[in-house]
Design a protein around this nucleic acid. Structure first.
Length: 837
RNA sequence: GCCGGAGUGGCGGAACGGCAGACGCAGCGGACUUAAAAUCCGCAAUCGUAAGAUGUGAGGGUUCGAGUCCCUCCUCCGGCACCA
């Protein structure tokens, strides 16, 4: 054994050992151990990894190794989300084929992820851009098509000048592209959609099944789905009798409607307005609105504006035929019915609008004091109260009236109970080359015809022309486009849109289970056995993209009968991002190339070793929170490993060659403390990992143990019991650290001649209860709740004995002098609090 | 506005209602060294010479005892939103 910590020599050695012995190769058909599917979100192969990516894979590796040591058959696979825009942009910019660019990036990133010592079953490696994989992505599309979930429609889509059309989930709240940050416009296009709206209720309800998910992510998905319950009430245009349906969550205020607000692009306007005196004014207003960029239109600052249509509507509840119909800028057409009933007295937006344009106000909910009147009010009253001016509902509590008023409308035939969702159907098509072709043929006779499953994959041609800077290269590839209709055999054209990369990454966890199956996407029995994923690890930025889409696709496949599970991920851990201060402005930013604050693992691994990088990454802070990478702070973990190595080196010369039971009676007090601390640490480390993957505190405890080991000063002159203890300490520390710093752990395990070979086969150590026993306890003394000192007492004293000893102590005497003791609280073995006045 | 999370030393952060600041970084002192680095030993919340007092965003409350539980509020982060 070398004297200095030889990370350069040992790390490649053990990495090779894990490969050679198949440590991470998973036999999915082995039923002798319980299964554990540990999955980290697979990366997009953008080129190089930084230490922020590493946090994800390192945490997954610790969990994988810990679960292996605690007796599970662990599946830990890895792959590449390798379709997508950056490869296509690289092709245009550097004149390199996206396939070549992608494959080279994968090779580089694979090298990096292996250099961290992260263990995967590489036999299951997948890349979504390989025909062997995307063949089955196309199959997934066809299942959706068969169920009627995939459909085409002409619709306004979110259009990014660089990334083409986007799903709603890819547009930020302020109207920018999540990928490239450009402003998003609306464009009318015929597109392939997935009917996620049909699954909205199930996706919402099943969030309750996901107990192992962070509350935050469940909330985000619930927000995104955006279910609201209310009523749809049909008003009628007074002048023409046209239906004018509104959706409202507040039917209790319906007698207070004084105007109606309609979205500028609502179809009803096209019917009503032509030829009326108001036509020009409305048109001018609508055009002006259309020219405001989305980002600005959505900002809070935008003032409420509108223009009167000249028409009125009639309230079916009270026959009020004088309700003005206004086109406004604060109603959107794709939510509800695109028409909103406005009640100025009980909605602040309606209040503002009515005030601006002098529209009447009518009070329908009175406050408990009975003091409200439209003449004296200065803002909308949005609290609860009792109905007034509401016909037969007067006097009813407004909460109760919601149900009663809707029911009355239902009975009369002009209202219905409805549920509204915010979520919109998912646009899965992209006008790009580097994706899985949508397996559809457009036939002049038969329309859109799905490619039969036995003709998959629809291959992406290699010989495409990226030179022109316009449009999808596939759409210009005659050899690809021209085909025959699978149904009637007539000449036909292939669909030239490709599938969004999100769809490729929605089912990859199923493919890993049976990655080399060339007959089917996966074997159903195997997937039923291995799903759901037991632990999924990744970034929270996928909360409403990948994580929602994956849940959706699993439900589709469940409906198609392809698998039994209804939810893909039993437990989800969203790790925090690694940030670094920018040298330019001193602010913290997520690591990224554009900010220029990335830290490459390569140099660090060269200088300190992979184990140190792993240790620092895990020690940096609570794993679920963002953390700041500080270049100097890596010293601590490095010093710790050097110290551990040195201790082991010194120990090797004195300890017995094999494990020997520790004779506890023969230990001196410092050694006894070490023995206790060792097993306390084992208990604590296990607990830290089990309860929320708190690796930072697990490592802190190991560092404490090392400090106590120093104090015990066990050397050549120590007793045999102490030497046995020293051996047990080093070997147990190696086992506890095996998931965290696997290379040094393996090396120490081997150096100390431990069996079985390979520390991953060693099992997780067991706590020795006898070692934990304490003979003397430090009892905290409090007077009136304030800490005043401590006394050492033998363990096992009764409540009375403890109290007597405490009251006899100097500290208690001193601080109770001149006071009468009113009460004494005794927490046996811990604390005595004397209450005195 | 609604929902979720978080506020603790110079910094990252510990603390299942019971010793606030574990562990680490940076810092200070000492040993070793011609010297430096590395290493080892020690000191470190604030005020105070000390006894002690004050301290976990602010203010109340519950409790023998509150960073932790309850109420009100402030700030920051994340999600949703002129959503009817």
């Amino acid at each position: 054994m070398e004297e200095k910590y030889p990370f350069h020599a040992i790390e490649p050695k053990w990495q090779k050992y894990w490969d050679d012995t198949g440590t991470f190769r998973c036999d999915t058909r082995d039923d002798s151990k319980p299964k554990f599917y540990c999955l980290t979100m697979f990366p997009y192969p953008s080129g190089h990894m930084h230490v922020g990516h590493g946090r994800n894979y390192i945490m997954g590796d610790v969990i994988t190794r810990y679960k292996m040591m605690t007796g599970y058959n662990v599946l830990s696979p890895m792959g590449w989300d390798s379709f997508g825009l950056p490869a296509e942009n690289a092709a245009k910019k550097f004149h390199v084929h996206p396939h070549k660019w992608t494959i080279e990036n994968i090779a580089e990133m694979k090298r990096q992820v292996r250099s961290w010592g992260v263990g995967y079953d590489w036999d299951r490696e997948i890349a979504t851009c390989h025909p062997d994989y995307y063949k089955w992505t196309q199959w997934v599309f066809l299942q959706a098509y068969k169920l009627g979930v995939a459909y085409q429609k002409e619709a306004p889509v979110n259009w990014c000048p660089l990334c083409t059309n986007l799903a709603n989930e890819e547009v930020t709240a302020d109207g920018h592209c999540v990928r490239c940050g450009r402003p998003v416009e609306k464009k009318n296009l015929k597109q392939w959609f997935f009917r996620i709206t049909q699954y909205a209720d199930r996706l919402l309800k099943d969030l309750d099944l996901l107990e192992g998910w962070p509350e935050k992510v469940r909330q985000m998905q619930a927000n995104w789905i955006g279910k609201s319950k209310g009523a749809q009430v049909t008003f009628r245009v007074t002048e023409t009798g046209d239906e004018c349906p509104v959706y409202t969550t507040r039917p209790d205020t319906i007698f207070g409607v004084t105007f109606m607000a309609i979205a500028p692009d609502h179809p009803l306007l096209k019917k009503l307005l032509p030829g009326t005196p108001q036509e020009a004014a409305v048109k001018e207003f609508t055009e002006r609105l259309a020219n405001i960029p989305a980002a600005e239109r959505l900002s809070d600052a935008l003032a409420k504006e509108g223009v009167f249509t000249g028409f009125h509507v009639t309230n079916p509840y009270n026959g009020d035929s004088d309700i003005q119909l206004w086109v406004t800028n604060y109603v959107v057409s794709d939510s509800g019915t695109g028409i909103v009933m406005a009640v100025p007295t009980h909605d602040q937006r309606d209040w503002d609008f009515a005030a601006k344009y002098g529209i009447p106000k009518k009070l329908v909910i009175q406050n408990p004091e009975g003091t409200l009147s439209p003449e004296t009010m200065t803002a909308a009253y949005v609290e609860d109260g009792v109905l007034v001016n509401s016909g037969k509902f007067d006097g009813m509590k407004n909460r109760d009236a919601i149900q009663a008023i809707t029911q009355a409308g239902v009975d009369a035939g002009f209202a219905e109970f409805t549920t509204n969702f915010r979520i919109r159907d998912w646009n899965v098509a992209r006008q790009r080359y580097w994706g899985a072709p949508i397996p559809i043929v457009h036939c002049p006779h038969c329309g859109a015809v799905p490619v039969p499953e036995d003709q998959l994959p629809v291959r992406l041609p290699d010989d495409v022309d990226f030179a022109a800077d316009q449009g999808n290269p596939l759409a210009r590839h005659e050899g690809f486009i021209n085909t025959v209709c699978p149904k009637c055999g007539a000449p036909a054209k292939r669909e030239t849109d490709t599938l969004a990369q999100w769809l490729c990454s929605c089912w990859y966890f199923l493919r890993y289970i049976d990655a080399r199956n060339d007959k089917a996407p996966f074997d159903k029995a195997l997937v039923d056995k291995w799903m759901p994923v037991d632990q999924y690890i990744g970034g929270v930025e996928h909360a409403v993209l990948h994580l929602l889409y994956s849940r959706f696709v699993v439900k589709i496949l469940n409906d198609a009968g392809a698998l039994d599970c209804v939810e893909p991920f039993r437990a989800l851990f969203t790790q925090g991002m690694i940030c670094k201060r920018s040298e330019k402005d001193g602010k913290l930013y997520k690591m990224s190339k554009s900010v220029g604050n990335v830290v490459s693992p390569d140099e660090l691994i060269e200088n300190y070793g992979a184990d140190t990088v792993r240790l620092y990454t895990l020690f940096i802070g609570p794993p679920e929170l963002d953390a700041e990478w500080q270049d100097t702070a890596i010293q601590g973990p490095y010093r710790f490993l050097c110290r551990l190595w040195k201790k082991a080196y010194e120990a090797k010369a004195v300890v017995p060659a094999a494990d020997t039971p520790v004779d506890i009676a023969a230990l001196n007090p410092a050694e006894r403390d070490l023995f206790r601390k060792l097993h306390q640490t084992l208990k604590g480390v296990t607990d830290s990992i089990e309860r929320g993957f708190r690796f930072n505190t697990a490592i802190a405890q190991l560092m404490e143990l090392m400090n106590v080991l120093d104090k015990a000063k066990i050397g050549p002159d120590s007793s045999d019991a102490a030497k046995a203890l020293l051996r047990e300490t080093i070997v147990t520390v190696a086992r506890m650290m095996a998931p965290i710093t696997p290379h040094i752990a393996e090396e120490l395990w081997a150096e100390f001649g431990c069996t079985p070979a390979g520390i991953m086969n060693a099992g997780w150590p067991k706590v020795n209860e006898e070692a934990l026993r304490e003979d003397t306890l430090q009892i905290v003394l409090q007077v009136n709740g304030k800490m005043r000192g401590k006394i050492a007492l033998p363990a096992g004293l009764s409540r009375e004995e403890t109290e007597a000893a405490a009251r006899a102590s100097e500290e208690v005497k001193r601080f109770t002098e001149g006071l009468t003791v009113a009460k004494v609280i005794v927490v046996p073995g811990k604390l005595v609090n004397v209450v005195a006045k």
